[in-house]
Amino acid sequence: MNLANPITTLILLAMTVLSVYATFGALRRLSPSGHPGRPVLASVMQRVIVAVIMLTTLGMFARFWLRDGGWQPVTSHRDGLLLMSFMLAGAVLFIQSRARLVGLSSFALPVLTFILGWAICASAWTYHPFDLPTLHPVWRGVHLTGVYLGTGFCGVAAMAGGMYLYVQARLKRKQNLGGLGRLASLEALENTIIRSATLGFVLLTLGLVSGVVVISDGDTPLPAGWWFAPKIVLATLAWGIYAVLMNVRYASGFRGRRAAWLSIIGIVLLLATYVVVTSLPPAPPVSPTASVSNGSGHTNTTNLVLPAKSSASKASVLDPVEGD
């Protein structure tokens, strides 16, 4: 019996409750009538975030022990989300230590809560482990690291983008300007967007390239029309957006508000990619022999169109297989 899922789900639930509490505190802090210096609330938020990180780490170690040493950091989409929440919590702590980014954690906590909630779903109801043993370990590592870390940085860019729009709207409407002093400046937020988008772009590039290598398996040419797959299209669009974002200082027409919107659209596209990967049915094979057994008694139905002989080994790591 695999106890990993119930335990992880419980840990995720605990973290989500804490994060919801911190989120309400953060949103209250954002409200124009909110008192700028709520030291109690700020310290509670900080503790909650530290607790989230600790619980996430505990959850990972718990899985390690329960798997008798066969622990791998990311074996499913749930693990990926957990890793993202871990990184996001770290980012929140970093942001809180930066005077110039004051208030950005208020935008990070709702995202953290959302990711944790999503991780609960991925753990309790839609749990699908990746077909890791069939993949090249180096490219798999590069792919997973690139995709999840890249998404994490893109998430930070999106949070900064959301806050940019919020601060800009208040500045333009000229209402309740008195409380704006406790929020980061537009310039600092734009810098955060650009830096995070640049890091995200680099890591996503690594993830996408390694993903293509994983699909092609090095020696076999890619099947015709492989780039029509929704996740490839969505990921490429997001990649293009981040390519523009990191050069926004030179493409001045995209500065400010447009850059903020691009950062949000970019993360929405990346999340849509994850949704496509985990939810949508696989593309229909062009060859009647495409749907084959993966050798473990289960039928692999989510791969891209690949020769039957090597279909299992050419699956993207984000393509789940049924069962554990």
Partner: peptide, 10 residues
């Protein structure tokens, strides 16, 4: 000056 701080960081 405070509002300028809201637009510019440095």
């Amino acid at each position: 000056a405070d509002l300028a701080h809201q637009v510019f960081a440095d």
